[in-house]
Design a protein around this nucleic acid. Structure first.
Lengths: 218, 218
DNA sequence: TCCGATATGAACTGATAAGTTCATTTCAAG
DNA sequence: CTTGAAATGAACTTATCAGTTCATATCGGA
């Protein structure tokens, strides 16, 4: 099994969360990621994680004090990773409609992705019992999108093509609109895969509605 | 403990889901409801349910073949019960804006309720492992609202005060808009209680946006 | 090549929980 | 009051799983 060696080669640094590092750290994290995303927190067993990671259970407990902290670490890493992948966002100089359409497509795509869906299920399902988990997920997922959106909307308002009083509400509304007709079907298992037409419909429906409300026609 | 006796007085009928009934059926269901809603499916223990229901474990297993079916039965009952409570909906002869505002307030209220939140967490969290659970929840919760909404929107379209091509999309969009600024805060534990002002802002934001897009001004 | 840090695995503890069993008791209908 | 269905409770089986322990093996850097 090929795995990246820990950055810097330092073997026994402690992370800021009570988590030790070492040679096989990445391997463990990867195994944990797979199993937690597949089975959820409660149903995932540490023995299974060890098996999938190709590592002994003792090694796992050398890194993490317990299962909860291991899970939190995985969640944290996944959120950060996912965020980095979505770095590229609508550039500066495109028409509003185009920018909104691109943004809507990203939002819809994320939520339809296997990762997006499973992570959402876990965070929502276990959220009440993991203080801070929901917050962590939000800050490095939806919250980040939200901030970007507010920022871009503001610049369009300055240009005079949008008129928005409450930028934060507008951004939330837009994000919500992108999920119309998608989120429920997926979350409640009423459709395995959505057709590109379904997505197209939601995306354009969101953009049309948003512009009808906040567009100046300029 | 006071409990309603089984309807009809028939003691040993089998329901359509492999579930037997009997003297203490309602008591068991009530205990299960409490514990499942409090702890979720995985963390709820049958012994605890027996304790809370004031019933012996053997009795529980006389009714339900296993924990899963017991949970499904509880979920079913809860959804139906909840639906019945929300029967009253916007009447016929009020202006669109008023009707939409009332509807938005209900949607927001349901999702902020303790029951709405916990049930959503469980259904989303366990949904992948309970075939049919998501569907059941949808059909007797959000799906019902959806149908009502479509129906009412159609009548306003006929009156000429709304202009809507895709009624189902419009209904989904409206429902989504009502959650803007509420759902994420609650689900991700970023606010214990939302102020009435927050709700007011979301509700009116939803109505304003919906009318901007679909209103004819008539 | 040598050394100290790291990993191993396999057995072990302790706890919890699902589901079963059965002799005994309660209850309600007739 | 009688009777049979329903309920009891407490012990029991079986299984799973988190977390520990330790003697041994491996690995990478110097």
């Amino acid at each position: 099994m090929i795995y990246a060696s820990p950055k810097g080669g330092v073997m026994n640094a402690r992370s800021d969360h009570g988590v030790r590092r070492g040679r096989k750290f990445d391997q463990v994290l990867e195994g944990a990621r797979k199993v937690f995303l597949r089975d959820g927190f409660e149903r995932a067993s540490v023995d299974e994680i060890a098996r999938v990671a190709g590592v002994s259970k003792a090694t796992i407990y050398a890194y993490f004090p317990d299962k909860q902290l291991m899970f939190l670490e995985v969640a944290r890493c996944e959120c950060h990773r996912q965020t980095e992948e979505a770095e590229a966002m609508v550039g500066g100089e495109v028409p509003v409609r185009v920018a909104l359409t691109i943004a809507a497509e990203r939002i819809a795509a994320f939520q339809m992705s296997d990762f997006g869906q499973r992570m959402f299920r876990i965070v929502v399902g276990e959220g009440e019992r993991f203080p801070g988990l929901g917050r962590e997920f939000y800050d490095f997922g939806p919250g980040l999108i939200h901030e970007r959106l507010v920022h871009h909307l503001a610049s369009y308002v300055e240009q005079g093509v949008l008129k928005i009083d409450d930028l934060h509400l507008a951004a939330d509304q837009f994000a919500q609109l992108c999920k119309a007709g998608i989120q429920e079907k997926l979350l409640f298992g009423m459709a395995e895969k959505l057709t590109p037409e379904d997505v197209h419909r939601s995306v354009h429906g969101a953009v049309d509605m948003f512009l009808a409300r906040y567009g100046t026609g300029a």
